[in-house]
Design a protein around this nucleic acid. Structure first.
Lengths: 151, 151
DNA sequence: GATAGGGCTTCCAACGATGGGAAGGTCAAG
DNA sequence: CTTGACCTTCCCATCGTTGGAAGCCCTATC
């Protein structure tokens, strides 16, 4: 089948299929005499694997590892589980960070009457730094960079 | 003060300060005779505002709006609150999506014994599509986002 | 005065994953 | 043969941030 059909069957856009091929995530597809890429059902299955893994938030880099394990009949499920749990942990952290942002913002928004007057605790917070009332995380070290082996 | 000192005082890297200037988020800094940028305490305050807003997950585009309101003494706090609540809503959605990924993955990881045998429900799920057992979201729309920045 | 070092300047590239679009070749139906 | 849908490659843009190169400036020390 052509790339468009494979895209429809897998849920991966034709653009991305070409991209995955260019980066080596998937093998180069076969070609017709005129240069069109051709895909088998097995190819579509790989694409669906990728699609599903992307939906679960795995990076393309991790997906490459997962595909390698998927194809390896002598794999150890522990290796797969390690990748999955590491990803879960990454998600957990990012969720926690965003949750913290959200809590802080909700707190500020609740304190803002949101009418036609200019007084606004949200802007006050942004202008003066985190309100001392709720220091959730240790004061961000106001140092971004310096002796950390720069240049 | 020089850009390096302003960076240290604001928590925004010199690189980013130049970038913000180039995109128009902040006004072009003054220059010494030899071309060095110079910053006042007021400039540093703006940079800190930006830093804090970035820490709360606002996009640079939104920050531009917030700074405009910040400077506008005739602003209506409702405008600020609208921006904030819209951002809260965006965070809420992205958190929900990631939470769903995490829940699914945790479910799969729990079912994976993670030993030296090849059998692995995680790979089975990826290879065959979402397990029918827990179809949380039926239609699965077209994109899984894993980073911030809905563009 | 010469030199070393650090800070500053600009410009260019890369990251990750995806979409948009141009310029042109191919295929199938009418 | 024409039309339109499809395919090809190539480049650009996103978004925020970092890295690096080449070169100028400032200060301190010899």
């Amino acid at each position: 089948m052509n790339i468009g059909e494979a895209a429809r069957a897998s849920g991966v856009s034709a653009k991305m299929i070409r991209y995955y091929e260019s980066t080596g995530l998937i093998a180069a597809a076969g070609r017709t005499a005129s240069g069109y890429r051709t895909y088998s059902d097995a190819d579509v299955q790989v694409l669906r694997f990728i699609r599903r893994a992307r939906d679960l938030g795995f990076s393309v880099e991790r997906i490459a590892e997962l595909i390698a394990l998927w194809r390896d009949r002598t794999r150890q499920s522990g290796d797969v589980k390690r990748i999955a749990t590491a990803h879960i942990e990454g998600l957990r952290q990012r969720i926690a960070e965003m949750q913290e942002m959200m809590d802080t913002l909700q707190h500020l928004a609740d304190a803002c009457c949101g009418d036609d007057r200019p007084d606004c605790p949200i802007l006050s917070d942004l202008g003066t730094g985190p309100a001392a009332a709720r220091n959730r995380h240790a004061p961000r070290d106001s140092r971004g960079l310096q002796t950390k082996g720069a240049h």
